[in-house]
Design a protein around this nucleic acid. Structure first.
Length: 567
RNA sequence: CGGGGCGUAGCGCAGCCCGGUCAGCGCGCCUGCUUUGGGAGCAGGAGGUCGUGAGUUCGAAUCUCACCGCCCCGACCA
């Protein structure tokens, strides 16, 4: 591509609305432009990178026997009613009416369409297994789009679906995808983690996420650097830390106006870990949850224990049960007896302080085993950094991460709901076993930038994703010997099938260098004084920083060698 | 949906508190000349319903109200 005729609107200034580095760089490099909140146009450079990502995905999906197809974005709402997900997705689904008043939806994902195809065209075990995939635009009316291209309302996703006769088949398809995903993310040059996850809205059994570490990530991961065990914080558990040895007498103390853990611990000059949070929740029955003062409750675990309708109790419910307002409640001296569960980290804990169920009073010296012998110990809290790994006991690390891919064993959830059945060799009708496997394409692009940008300068693409491998920079466009050389090298590179960008614009050297750094191609070729004086071409490998000077006749060989050396 | 911030030229911003030469700056853009190894110099020039609508006022970018949009935190979520 010749830059003089290209639409690559680079900017010197940092865009005001962009916070995340990848978002800033993508805007500055002219890869994307926003249209409305959570919707972007992909400009030529940005789209080129997207296509490179999609190419890698296609190659790896094809290599495990995936067949690409293209599915409708516009779906009749009826199939979503069949699966129950019209309700589950709720406001997150874009809905519209056609001219006859029929409700259609913009597909947020495609399990329903796949299931519909399967039930119509898969009849026998002989038709299975199948791996179908698609790379398409999907729509979700996110309550809050954010972080540039990381969370949008319109996005491109690779989704694949496995259809199998049984659980063994499903496992095989799942493992094949796990392998393909590792290859995909590796080829994209990413450092990533594979973690156990919660399947959420997708339903079904176990799932795994492919995550990249990022302070802007919306998920938290728990990783054990020693044994490698990695889980999403939603499902992670840990070995409770050892309880300190200090018993005490049960004493009621005055704590006027002190309600939060922070306030009470400050007031009593105790550390939050000597405190106990007493929280009242309600599902069918009210329940009190006890956790250590410095711990946080994990809603996913709560839901697992008490069902999806579990919620924090309302203030009047708390008063009815405890006799006082939140902030002074505790397990001892309740007005009405309710189920109490305590987090495992509190097992054998002594000398704890929590509310006394009396306004402006707390109770200290609590020994749960002594004072509340009937309570059950469960895992309801978030793991925190330093907890013991549930596998090997080494301290774990908790950090933020972005989800790039998620693989699910759906089982028969959709096939049973939508009657996608096949006949087995004995003529029995059985539900198809499904798996679903997604990858966010623009998230890969953003994650690569996050992991590889050079502060103050710009991006640096690896071989797999670089929109162009070589960036030709003729420094002086006034000198005919330079322009002639630039044209010749450009022709050589392009006819050698090497993606090349030629900066044939009039402009100062500094201007071109800054733009080239911003755009981040792995190889820069500089044509300037060294050619005029010594007939030398300057080639820079931006990954190693190495600069070589070559003659015209060594040029292509050198370029090809450098390309081969790129990862 | 709760909390916060912002909306003035293509981009980044000042002006707003204290209404009245406040329609301004830098970058970019156009023309010409000079430049060309790290976002060049000089000279000239184009470009804005000050988010929208009502209101207060002799007079509103500036004060009031409503609405819209964008961003951030939270809730929620692949």
């Amino acid at each position: 591509m010749r830059l003089s005729h290209a639409y690559v609107p680079t900017r010197k200034e940092v865009p005001a609305d962009a916070v995340m580095p990848s978002h800033q760089w993508m805007l500055r490099a002219g890869m994307i432009r926003p249209l409305v909140s959570g919707v972007y146009s992909y400009l030529p450079i940005g789209w080129k990178v997207m296509r490179k990502v999609m190419r890698i995905i296609r190659e790896e999906m094809d290599s495990i026997g995936g067949q690409e197809l293209q599915l409708p974005v516009l779906n009749p709402v009826e199939i979503w009613d069949e699966s129950g997900r019209n309700t589950d997705f709720g406001d997150e689904m874009f809905r519209l009416q056609d001219r006859k008043g029929r409700t259609l939806i913009l597909a947020p994902t495609h399990e329903e369409v796949i299931c519909d195809l399967a039930r119509k065209y898969i009849q026998s075990y002989k038709d299975l297994p199948q791996i179908w995939y698609q790379i398409q635009t999907k729509f979700r009316d996110e309550p809050r789009p954010r972080s540039g291209v990381m969370r949008t309302r319109q996005f491109i996703m690779k989704d694949s679906y496995t259809l199998d006769v049984d659980d063994d088949g499903l496992n095989a398809g799942y493992q094949a995808h796990a392998g393909a995903y590792r290859k995909i993310f590796t080829r994209c040059g990413l450092t990533f983690h594979v973690v156990g996850a919660s399947s959420g809205l997708m339903g079904g059994g176990r799932s795994q996420e492919f995550m990249v570490e990022s302070p802007y990530g919306e998920d938290a991961l728990v990783l054990c650097d020693h044994c490698g065990k990695a889980d999403n914080l939603e499902v992670a558990s840990s070995v409770p830390p050892a309880a300190p040895e200090s018993s005490g007498e049960l004493v009621k103390i005055k704590t006027p106006g002190q309600k939060t853990i922070q306030e009470v611990s400050g007031f009593l000059k105790k550390s939050p870990r000597e405190m106990m949070k007493s929280l009242v929740y309600a599902s069918d029955e009210p329940v009190m949850i006890l956790i250590r003062g410095d711990h946080e409750i994990n809603e996913s675990k709560l839901i697992k224990l008490f069902g999806p309708s579990v919620r924090p109790a309302h203030p009047d419910e708390i008063i009815e049960i405890c006799g006082t307002e939140a902030g002074y409640v505790g397990p001892i001296g309740l007005k009405r007896s309710i189920t109490i569960v305590a987090d495992r980290a509190l097992e054998n804990q002594q000398n704890l302080t929590t509310g006394a169920n009396e306004k402006d009073r707390h109770l200290s010296g609590i020994d749960l085993m002594r004072d509340c012998p009937e309570i059950r110990y469960v895992d309801v809290r978030n793991v925190i950094s330093g907890d013991g790994c549930s596998e090997c006991g080494s301290p774990v690390r908790v950090f933020n991460a972005v989800e790039l891919g998620h693989i699910f064993k759906l089982g028969t959830k959709y096939s049973e709901a939508m009657k996608a059945m096949y006949s087995d060799p004995d003529g029995n009708e059985k539900p198809i076993f499904m798996g679903s496997y997604g990858i966010g394409v623009e998230r890969i692009v953003a994650a690569c930038i996050e992991q590889n940008f050079r502060p103050e300068r710009g991006m640096l693409w690896n071989r797999g994703l670089a929109p162009y491998l070589v960036h030709l920079i003729p420094v002086n466009m006034d000198k005919e010997e330079i322009t002639r050389l630039a044209d010749a090298l450009y022709t050589d590179l392009v006819s050698g099938n090497i993606d090349t960008l030629l900066d044939d614009r009039k402009g100062s050297a500094g201007f071109k260098f800054k733009d080239a750094d911003l755009l981040g191609m792995p190889i820069h070729v500089i044509l300037g004084g060294k050619w005029i004086k010594e007939k030398q071409i300057e080639i820079k490998n931006r990954h190693t920083g190495e600069v070589v000077l070559v003659n015209r006749d060594q040029f292509m060989d050198t370029i090809e060698k450098i390309i081969d050396s790129l990862s």
